[in-house]
């Protein structure tokens, strides 16, 4: 019952947030100087041509009226037509979204693996130089944002030791027999491992750049959480039973230490998704963020609105799921 109340309350606040995002982005893009209509027409177009095109995109009406028309369309799945690409916004966004989702998921996976390994190793070697070294590495990894990690990786693994590709999502000369945009998933499902390898070679560095700061946070929080758990009586009991230290950490402590980390990962994951915008640009990865920057440069109002709303939907969605998971798993919140 209380959980249901919380669910409804969170759904309501999420709706308010999304509405706020829509209002802000809608207003902001309409203050943008630079006329997208003028950019579309050939030189020598008459004023009548401009007016006709404006009417076609609905830009001749007042801003509140435009918002109502756009909002009505959005509720019916119509996000308008991109001005620079002249295609429906929804199709464009859905076409690029899978690339960004694959990148973000890969980054999340890498972050969990690296951060988890760091925390477990540091816990296993408490009080030694290994732990101190991991602490320092974590501190540095945390202070440097994904943009800089991406650049460093480009220099190191793209130029000095060219191991990975530094541009694009897939080699342009490969023929892709895919029906969806989830290339990585589909290449595995179709057992085309040659393409999988190529995709991995491209996704590795941008994903790593996004993963490093998150891995550091996971490492720190999980380590702290493990430290607290390791002092509990039941862990001491397991030790007196004669279990080895590694087994005590993995089988006894980890299970209880992992909850606080999980909720944190959820929130930090939205920051990671936000980071894809510039990292995709850096690696010329054809995802949503890369398209967003082009949309801003081209003053493509409907496309900007669509992409920002899509990001906002993902962010609020992730936060909602994390919040509800936490409420469901934490008995104190469940009954509070």
């Amino acid at each position: 019952m209380l959980f249901l109340q919380r669910l409804l309350w969170r759904l309501a606040t999420t709706a308010v947030t999304l509405f706020g995002v829509a209002v802000i982005v809608f207003t902001v893009v309409r203050v943008v100087p630079g006329n997208p209509i003028a950019m579309m027409l050939p030189p020598g177009a008459t004023d009548a041509d401009v007016a006709r095109l404006k009417a076609l995109y609905g830009l001749d009406r007042s801003i509140p009226r435009q918002f109502l028309i756009w909002g009505w369309g959005v509720l019916h799945g119509d996000f308008g037509t991109s001005i620079s690409l002249r295609q429906p916004v929804l199709g464009l966004v859905l076409g690029r979204l899978p690339a960004t989702l694959e990148l973000a998921s890969m980054a999340l996976l890498m972050a969990v693996l690296m951060g988890g390994a760091a925390a477990l190793t540091a816990t296993r070697h408490r009080g030694t130089r290994v732990e101190a070294g991991i602490d320092v590495t974590n501190g540095v990894a945390l202070s440097i944002p994904d943009f800089l990690w991406g650049l460093l990786l480009i220099i190191i693994f793209g130029v000095l030791m060219p191991v990975f590709d530094i541009s694009g999502r897939v080699s342009p000369d490969l023929k892709l027999p895919f029906t969806t945009q989830f290339y990585l998933v589909e290449s595995v499902l179709r057992l085309r491992f040659d393409i999988t390898a190529d995709l991995l070679g491209h996704i590795f560095m941008p994903a790593l750049a996004l993963a490093i700061p998150l891995a550091a946070i996971i490492g720190q929080v999980l380590k702290q959480s493990l430290k607290e758990t390791m002092e509990l009586d039941y862990v001491t009991l397991a030790r007196t039973k004669g279990y080895g230290e590694t087994r005590v950490i993995l089988r006894e402590a980890l299970r209880n230490a992992i909850l606080p980390t999980l909720t944190l990962v959820g929130v930090q994951f939205t920051f990671l998704i936000g980071g894809t915008v510039i990292v995709e640009r850096l690696f010329s990865y054809e995802g949503l963020g890369n398209m967003a920057i082009d949309a801003v440069i081209n003053r493509d109002l409907p496309l900007i609105q669509g992409i920002v709303l899509c990001f906002a939907l993902i962010f609020t969605g992730v936060n909602l799921v994390v919040d509800l998971t936490y409420a469901a798993l934490n008995p104190r919140l469940r009954h509070a």
Binding site: G20, G289, I293, V296, V308, F311, F315
Partner: peptide
Amino acid sequence: SRLVDIWMAFPPVLFSILLIAVLG
């Protein structure tokens, strides 16, 4: 707090690029 929630739903890099497009 509600404003913070709304702000947090924007990807910050995209937000800043958008603002620069507006502000010049």
